[in-house]
């Protein structure tokens, strides 16, 4: 009986772990992939409406565009117009680019210019286009113990230098996301290598990082949208804003099917991605982006700048 019990527990545990792992990787990669195979191999030629193309594309993007609510605001307009459904997979920029390299996405909307250009150079992306930018802010405790707001209201480099000199708690995303990369590039610009007990690498999304910062009463660099969404629950104020170093450019990259083997190539909805690309760079989409957030926060969260 005991043997049986021990054995069943072992099997159960093993099983649990295996299932756990499988579910983890299956969620965002496996499912949409299969659907694309079905939908994209038959271009919808029989559609009657002029603009309607049909089908489905996978948009791999960063959590910030999803969490800010921007995609929920603009995508229904696109889906309505062209009959193409957009499956959004919101992950860190690192993962988004990895999905592109694995052929698991049709188009990427991310914000880490260097990595994006590298991605296109490697041949995985056809080209990269500017879409919009948002800005980052340095937030910190309401009483601003380092008095950064007085000394450096518009100078992020000065602010970060002061934080590092005082070894004051700073919470970093630490998750290889676009925001994380942006933060690191600003540290680099300030010629500081952040390390030590005061520099906390959270490895979490923006919302969690803001909560940790609030809890530890430290400073962090956040995108404006997430901060504005959460500010009522936080004892944190905007300390530094408006520095050019804090601007954050989003780019869109359609995946290049030629970079893949035939079986992967067949799954990529090139046509759908092209239509989406043309649309998001159009005046219509750019206007939508520019008006999002004005109503709720009194200012746009993203500034459209497609050329």
């Amino acid at each position: 009986m005991k043997r049986f019990l021990a054995l069943s527990i072992s099997i159960l545990l093993l099983f649990t772990i295996l299932v756990g792992c499988k579910a983890d990787s299956g969620q965002d990669v496996g499912e949409p992939e299969e659907e694309v195979v079905e939908e994209s191999t038959e271009p919808a030629e029989e559609e009657t409406a002029e603009d309607e193309v049909g089908g489905r594309i996978i948009l791999s993007t960063t959590t910030s565009t999803q969490d800010s609510g921007l995609l929920d605001y603009i995508l229904p307009v696109f889906e309505e117009k062209y009959g193409i459904e957009v499956d959004v997979v919101a992950v860190g920029t690192g993962k988004a680019l990895q999905m592109g390299r694995d052929g698991d996405a049709d188009i990427l909307l991310v914000h880490a210019k260097e990595s994006e250009e590298e991605f296109v150079a490697e041949g995985y992306g056809k080209a990269r286009f500017d879409v919009m930018y948002n800005d980052f802010i340095l937030v910190g405790p309401k009483d601003d113990p380092l008095k950064l707001k007085e000394k450096f209201p518009k100078d992020i480099l000065g602010g970060l230098k002061t934080i590092a000199e005082n070894e004051f708690t700073f919470v970093s995303r630490g998750d290889d996301s676009g925001t994380h990369k942006k933060e690191l590039s600003i540290w680099k610009e300030a010629q500081i290598e952040p390390a030590g007990d005061w520099y906390l690498e959270a490895g979490s999304g923006m919302g969690d990082v803001l909560k940790i910062t609030d809890e530890k009463q430290g400073y962090t660099i956040s995108d404006r949208a997430t901060y504005l969404n959460m500010r009522d629950e936080l004892d944190l104020d905007i300390i530094i804003e408006g520095d050019e170093n804090l601007f954050n450019q989003y780019g869109i990259i359609p995946i290049n099917p030629e970079a893949f083997d035939d079986d992967v190539k067949g799954r990529i909805n090139e046509e759908g991605a092209q239509i989406f690309l043309d649309w998001i760079l159009s005046d219509e989409a750019q206007e939508l982006i520019g008006e999002y957030g004005v109503e709720e926060f009194g200012m746009p969260l993203f500034v459209p700048n497609a050329k």
Binding site: G92, K95, L200, G203
Partner: peptide
């Protein structure tokens, strides 16, 4: 999931996956 402080096996796996 703070590096060198509160990062354990499962939270790291979950984070590393989302980082690709």
């Amino acid at each position: 999931n703070i590096k060198n402080r509160t990062r354990v096996i499962t939270t790291t796996i979950s984070m590393m996956n989302s980082m690709g």
